[in-house]
Design a binder for these strands. Structure first.
Lengths: 338, 338
DNA sequence: GGCGGTTACTTTTGCGCATAAGTTGTACGC
DNA sequence: GCGTACAACTTATGCGCAAAAGTAACCGCC
């Protein structure tokens, strides 16, 4: 790797002159010298040493993307097509702006923080963190942070959140189910926090507005761990006759549930209607095609990255951006109005 | 961020002493001093500045993972669950060894090379590159390179390849189909290079061994671009009565094809048998569950990373590692032996 | 004809770290 | 009591780059 120093020596000039040409500082160097340097740079295919530049400038041109992996989850966050699409969106945006992406997958917040300060990362995108973790990181780490899908009023004081109108999504979906004659509608999820809670709330709100009583038995809790999911599914399928429709918190769960029901001779949507949330490949390629709530995952990644970039350039950004969610009506809901 | 210099000043000692303690150089520093430094380090939560360390050591502790994205592909490489699992495997291995992962998604080989030398990346993992690109990169970039799923005899002189016994996989699968009475077996893919070609060869070899004539009309070429795939699928479905079974080069295509067939009233496996390759979620959650060839994608990522790490520590590694592929018999193949 | 201003440079400094080279002080052998 | 060996340090240097500060030549101008 050729250095500025070496170039300067071979060209018989000072490193500053070379550096100035590299940084396009016009007015400081004559056109003649400039051309000479530029030609030489091209000839030797000069590439700056970023470590040196970072050290001198105290910046890194790195954006960290930290995914808090929930390793015990069915199967794992990283398995969800969601994740790679999100990563792709972030990477593309970052790279086009001349930044680099360092990917960090861990369930250990401390490890993430250590990593971030080690590299002097310019900005951070957090995904899958629990609300409190996001705050903890942001208190320690004084640079721009953008979170994805974090629900935390407290958190918004510390960072920008890129989310989805989850509540509206499930609200619309529940209303759609109601319009199709459904009253006994269950909600399936593995927890009651963050995104899942918001989606649950939209569902509950729709029931309330339609004057349908919500009973806690309508909440179907699925156990996400790989070694428990079968048992969980068994129980849920056993109770399926209590409902005419089940709203799942994700497409992954919806498709998983449909498979389990199918295996038990219960057919969708004839015997029971099932809907998902996310609108990923899983439901699109499913037959019957999955009725679900669409979200643009790539846009989420792109928006997160773009927002961070704005902050890095000193611009203000709203501390909450909600992307729209919309219904995608396909074939897993039966109209049971007589 | 506190520096070694500052720590040394506060402790009233030299930076070398502090540095020695950090690097565990025993025998150079007394136990008493050592303890004092260690306690202080913990107290102030010292994190080294990697840029400075890199500059001094001429290494980066970064492993680059370059994905050559085929942006026009249905939809996109990054959408395939395959990719995120692979990334996850690499990241985990790398991180446990104290390295960091820089992810780079691009269809531009030159851009990848520039990036790699900019960061003085210690090692490279290449995925999705065309054979020639891998060679081009390795000629320029003199450090360890591990490729994933590259088929290139020439390439093996330049880098280690982590692959799968693709040919054996399709060979076994084709034999299985033959054992179920199938003779008119098509092979569906979008190209005839690398992995796809190897899979095709296994299929062809099985036909030959069973004395079944292969005709080029048995190769079903699917157009991967999102705007062409429907038309492509239409044509293929129209010809489905020519075959009793179709072997697809991936689960993604298999499931896509089954959906298209289903939409046209052709049912699987009653009317036609369909099999995939990869064994990902898509086929596992499908009903009927997809008969396919399993590959351990995470292991691929882990092996690639582990091999690179070995090379970085100066060990020799074989220049070709082939992971096993094995049949997963599920429900999309009909036994048509009368 | 001395002075301010400009152009086109060069010299110097320092970012934080690792390490080669140098400096004490002291115990020990003979 | 002198040389040596070693432990336990410190000082100095350089990695490659950016930028502050310095220099030298020249031009125009009252």
């Amino acid at each position: 790797m050729i250095t500025i120093k070496e170039i300067a020596k071979q060209l018989n000039m000072s490193t500053t002159t070379v550096s100035n040409v590299i940084h396009g500082k016009t007015g400081e160097v004559s056109d003649e010298t400039k051309k000479k340097v530029q030609d030489f740079l091209k000839k030797v295919d000069y590439v700056p040493n970023i470590s040196a530049r970072n050290l001198a400038q105290n910046e890194s041109k790195i954006i960290g993307l930290a995914l808090k992996a929930r390793a015990d989850k069915y199967e794992n966050l990283i398995m969800d097509p969601f994740v790679s699409v999100l990563i792709g969106g972030v990477e593309e945006t970052i790279r086009n702006a001349g930044y680099f992406m360092m990917l960090y997958i861990s369930s250990d917040t401390d490890e993430i923080m250590r990593h971030v300060s080690t590299w002097n990362v310019d900005g951070l995108i957090l995904f899958g963190m629990l609300n409190d973790d996001g705050i903890r990181v942001s208190e320690k780490y004084k640079k721009p942070i953008v979170c994805i899908d974090t629900y935390s009023i407290e958190g918004l004081k510390h960072f920008t959140n890129i989310g989805l109108d989850d509540e509206q999504g499930t609200y619309d979906m529940a209303n759609y189910l109601i319009s199709q004659g459904h009253r006994k509608i269950a909600f399936l999820s593995d927890n009651m926090n963050g995104v899942d809670l918001a989606r649950f709330n939209g569902y509950k709100k729709a029931l309330k507005d339609a004057r349908i009583r919500f009973s806690s038995t309508n909440f179907l809790k699925i156990k996400p761990r790989a070694d428990e999911i079968e048992e969980s599914l068994d129980e849920i399928c056993g109770r399926s006759d209590e409902f005419t429709a089940i709203m799942c918190v994700s497409d992954l769960y919806a498709v998983t549930l449909i498979a389990a029901l199918t295996d038990r001779g219960i057919s969708v949507p004839e015997d029971i209607s099932i809907v998902g949330f996310d609108d990923n490949m899983l439901g699109q390629l499913h037959r019957p095609a999955l009725t679900t709530v669409h979200q643009d995952v790539k846009a989420k990644g792109v928006t997160a990255a773009a927002t961070l970039l704005k902050q890095l350039s000193g611009q203000k950004t709203p501390n909450q951006i909600k992307l729209p969610a919309h219904l995608v009506i396909r074939d897993t809901v039966k109209n049971i109005n007589k």
